[in-house]
Design a protein around this nucleic acid. Sequence first.
DNA 1: CTGTTAGCGCCTTCAT
DNA 2: ATGAAGGCGCTAACAG
Lengths: 342, 342
Amino acid sequence: MKKGHQVTMKEIAKKLGVSVSTISRALKDSPELHVETKRRIVEMAKEMNYQPNLLAQSLRISRTNTLGVIVPEITSHFFASCISGIQDHAIKRGYNVMICQSNESIEQEKANLKTLVASQVDALLISLSRETNHYEHLEEIYSREIPFVLFDRVHEEMPVSKITFNDAGGAYQVTKHLIETGCKKIMYISGPEDLYISKKRKEGYLKALKEFGLPENQELIKITDLTTEGNLQVAQEILDMKNRPDGVFCMIDPVAVDVLTLWKSLGVKIPTDIALAGFTNNPTSAVVEPPLTTVSQPGYEMGKLAVTHLLDQLEGLASDDPISIVLETTLVPRKSTKSVAK
Amino acid sequence: MKKGHQVTMKEIAKKLGVSVSTISRALKDSPELHVETKRRIVEMAKEMNYQPNLLAQSLRISRTNTLGVIVPEITSHFFASCISGIQDHAIKRGYNVMICQSNESIEQEKANLKTLVASQVDALLISLSRETNHYEHLEEIYSREIPFVLFDRVHEEMPVSKITFNDAGGAYQVTKHLIETGCKKIMYISGPEDLYISKKRKEGYLKALKEFGLPENQELIKITDLTTEGNLQVAQEILDMKNRPDGVFCMIDPVAVDVLTLWKSLGVKIPTDIALAGFTNNPTSAVVEPPLTTVSQPGYEMGKLAVTHLLDQLEGLASDDPISIVLETTLVPRKSTKSVAK
DNA sequence: CTGTTAGCGCCTTCAT
DNA sequence: ATGAAGGCGCTAACAG
């Protein structure tokens, strides 16, 4: 199977008996051209269905007007929303987008990066994989002065712009909500401890405990590997505790959904026996029974901000100095936690 | 903000005092080269951190090893799964992927197509927008002999390979399931009638009715525009009927979820008052209360098959003759329908 | 074994 | 107002 032929400037030139440069000028509406020749050329180009070869153009001007995006998982609703925000706003400003997923693997992330760089993308938007704990590949593109921003899953020490959520703030909100609805003994189910969000959300959790005079307790923090099996195991461990918590805050919604599923099947009443809250506001969380109290993170907005800032920098509309944009989250109280006492 | 410099073959050549072609040959491990020079070049390339410029390479060999993908919505879990399948298997075979979403708009679809073609993708995988009811843009790339396949949302008359689900079969399965669990009066909630899947699923629905001797009835088919408002309105209309159905099959899960939400809030018992089933097996459907009976469509698998077939054709491993691949669906019985009587 | 030459499609001085 | 020439980075005959 082979591709058909594409009309080139050369062919238009031959057909019209003018030079290629004239075609080039006409097609970009150069003012120094005779209106009549310009008209003839534009018309002929249309008739022959000329489409510029972006490849050649990019090679010539050494700019592709293409952005590279690397996310851990396309199938995650949150990242899909980010991509959507990135894509919509990139297109508005005349940029294409090449998307890759790392599948939460640092090796795949490196491979993606290499491919995108080889494809000469003008800049990159990256959200790191869970596995990513060293950063040579980022330092490499940094030292090569390829512009990039990090979003959501960032490496704090990298001197580039970062777009994140106020994770600590969100965790604080939700923990405070648990406290205000009567919980006295609140557990935090964390993901792997070296994850940025694990740390940040723990920070907010602890801050709320402290502020309201509840004791911190290492037994009240459990770690899951974020697989369903891991989540279910933690859920079971909690039930096995002789001194169960009366409120549980899960680092991300999927964990909360797994916990909820197991508990319901074992007759645990939510929120009366134990209140449950998540983080992210996945579509799923709104429809489980009871609906899950969570914290909303606008992914589309994050993508939009990230790409807008990146393009502003790229085009000199914003300073090159790295900045940190922090998006606020919103508590979404639902039935998996009790109502605030009036 | 500007990009840093990239090492080129020319620079390596100068540094080593050989010609550019020698570099080119060494880097692609040509056998007709002195081992020692080859070694020196490869080493130097590594030391200078040479990365080939895919743009130049593509322009030269007039092949980009890049595939274009157009889907209606990235944020839909089903399409995200397709993309994931496409991407994973494209990469395995040395191809990159450029993804665009049409946002269910034919104009955006056309724009995406134009961009991808201008970017010289080697081939395309396309799933049509809901709005797409004329096909000049597809005919255009067809006549230009740019290879492409259609998946899921296809245009049947287009003489290219198509990968679809057995939609009629799935609809038949689920309707049959409703019948076998005791429903006598089954309604089909369809999307816009010109949609391929609206038609196909209606086909299967009608076939099952006929086979089991249940009467067809125009009143038992309702149309929604697939917005939440539209879905809720239809859900209300059903309750307002003087002669309510005892089973409802919704064309896609989100419709069923909206219907379920409204009915539950009004005290309608599912499945005892009315049984409810969807189609697609979205993650959401498993966690609503009661969990939704639906039909599973493996999106990842579809993406994988689509890209594999396309690349096989592209690389001459498969005939260029268009084929139609039909994936079977699986009934996923859950609690929103009654159990089969033993 | 290696260098020279030509050209992929386009843009951009520099001439005229 | 237009054309000729050169080059973006790379590959592929063709010549030794």
